[in-house]
């Protein structure tokens, strides 16, 4: 176990380092962000001064060295645009993103589990075919387009939900959340549903496949033979075992949700880290992009680590090495 943690930690540092190198190399292709900050009539000296203020007056290599040095002291650099520490910008907007990501995941689970179990247990029924076709459509849909259509129907035409933005927020343990009021919920529903569609469809397929697999296993047949009722077989024996592999895809699902949140947040003007990333890309704000990517990478490594540990706890046959 200890060796495993060390290995994982090493891997994490490697990933973070690779990300930072990659971002620095790639960003050297883009234009010099200084030109966006200074007025169009700026003279050479004024541009040079702005560059100095932004820390862009060194070579890329030196900039990278300085960056690494500062990171080791906990300083991840300052946004060119906001002139604030980039990590505090990310942390400030993180709750908004986590809010829709977790709500989307909850929606996906609540819908996908019963439908997946049904389709897996009765693979021949027409309803199961409908579920499968539906899930395939879900995978084939461009998520951002679904969001647009939802806005058009539910916000513009029916005026049931607001078309964008985040509702009023309350502070809970120092974190600003918006799902505690009705107005806040009204704002979060459309983006969360949009975000959940892809995950929901994939989840449904996985659960169905696992269910079919489990239902063929001996212990389910024994349970049936012992006279356990259909529902008991399905949920106590079937689902429980079908869910174990689900734990492993949790990390992947979370990653996808965070990635697609960039699109969802852009469409719904949701003030989370995804919108911040897209805005920062438009503005050439490298420090924010670096910190965003490093942060997301860190999150995945941690989640995957947790998943591995959890998996070992659930399924004693697996040893963590």
């Amino acid at each position: 176990m200890f060796g495993y943690v060390i290995k994982r930690a090493f891997q994490m540092v490697l990933v973070l380092w690779a990300v930072s190198v990659l971002v620095f190399v790639m960003m050297s292709f883009t234009g010099d962000p200084t030109y966006m900050m200074v007025p169009l009539d700026a003279t050479e000296e004024q541009i040079a001064q702005a560059r100095r203020l932004l820390g862009l007056d060194h070579s890329h290599l030196t900039q990278y060295r300085l960056f690494l040095k500062n990171v080791l002291q906990g300083d991840f650099g300052r946004s060119f645009v906001f002139r604030q520490p980039a990590n505090s910008l990310i942390l400030e907007r993180l709750p908004a993103t986590l809010e829709i990501v977790f709500l989307a995941m909850a929606i996906a689970l609540v819908v996908a589990i019963p439908l997946g179990v049904y389709a897996g247990a009765n693979p021949k029924r027409a309803g199961s075919h409908a579920v499968m076709a539906g899930s395939l459509v879900g995978i084939s849909l461009p998520g951002f387009w679904v969001g647009m259509v939802l806005i058009f129907v539910f916000a513009v035409k029916l005026q049931l939900f607001p078309s964008s933005g985040r509702g009023p927020t309350q502070e809970v343990f120092g974190i600003r959340v918006s799902f505690l009021t009705w107005e806040g919920l009204r704002h979060i529903i459309l983006p969360a549903v949009t975000l959940s569609i892809g995950t929901l469809a994939i989840l449904m397929r996985i659960i169905r496949a696992e269910m079919m697999e489990v239902m063929r296993q001996d212990f389910v047949r024994f349970a049936r033979a012992k006279g356990v009722g259909q529902r008991g077989v399905l949920f106590r024996h079937g689902l429980k075992n079908a869910l174990i592999p689900l734990v492993t895809v949790f990390g992947l699902m979370l990653g996808d949700l965070i990635a697609f949140a960039t699109l969802t947040e852009t469409i719904f003007a949701w003030p989370g880290i995804g919108k911040l990333l897209v805005d920062s890309i438009y503005r050439g704000d490298r420090p924010v992009i670096v910190v965003y990517l490093m942060f997301v990478a860190l999150m995945f490594v941690v989640v995957n680590f947790a998943v591995d540990v959890l998996y070992a706890l659930i399924d004693p046959r697996i040893k963590i090495r």
């Binding site: 883009t30 234009g31 010099d32 962000p33 200084t34 030109y35 966006m36 169009l40 890309i281 438009y282 503005r283 050439g284």
Partner: peptide, 11 residues
């Protein structure tokens, strides 16, 4: 181009 590239490009 997005403006992040533009002003440097036409410099």
């Amino acid at each position: 181009m997005p403006r992040s590239n533009f002003f440097g490009y036409i410099r």
